Amino acid sequence: MYEKFYGLSSKPFQLKPDARFFYGSKGHKRAMSYLEYGISQGEGFIVITGEIGAGKTTLMRNLFLELVTENIVAAQIVNTHVGSEDILRLVAGAFGIEYENLSKATLLRRIEEFLIQIDRQGKRALLVVDEAQNLTPRALEELRMLSNFQTADKCLLQTFLLGQPEFRQVMLSPDMQQLYQRIIASYHLGPLDVVETKSYIEHRLNTVGWKNSPEINQDAYEAIHEYTGGIPRKINSFCDRMLLMGFLDEILIFGEAEIKKVIQDIQQESEVPLTTPIINTAIAIDNLGDNYSYSSLVDERLTRMEKALISVIGAVKKIVPVTKMNNAQD
Rank of each mutant, 00 (worst) to 15 (best):
L189I: 03
Q164G: 06
L161D: 08
S186I: 07
T323D: 04
S295Q: 13
R233K: 07
G27H: 13
S237E: 14
V73K: 07
A74I: 06
P273H: 07
N217D: 15
Q150R: 11
E113A: 13
Q177S: 10
F167L: 07
H28K: 01
P277T: 12
T49N: 09
E202I: 13
V47A: 04
V262C: 02
D18C: 04
I231C: 01
L179M: 14
I52C: 02
L302G: 00
K56Q: 14
V129T: 08
M145A: 06
L59Q: 11
E51F: 10
V78S: 12
E250V: 03
H81F: 12
S199I: 03
A223G: 00
I251S: 04
G96R: 07
V316E: 14
Q14W: 00
I201D: 10
E202Y: 06
N79Q: 14
L115G: 10
L157Q: 01
P137L: 12
N71M: 07
Q76H: 06
N101I: 05
N280L: 13
Q169G: 05
L59S: 07
Q178I: 07
V73H: 01
M245Y: 14
I310M: 08
L140I: 08
E215S: 11
Y37N: 08
M325C: 00
S237G: 08
M171N: 02
M242I: 08
C239K: 00
L162R: 03
R120M: 14
L126T: 07
L126C: 05
L88F: 06
Q177E: 13
V128S: 00
L143W: 08
K318P: 11
E141I: 04
E166T: 09
G27I: 05
E36L: 11
L115R: 03
E215H: 11
G93N: 15
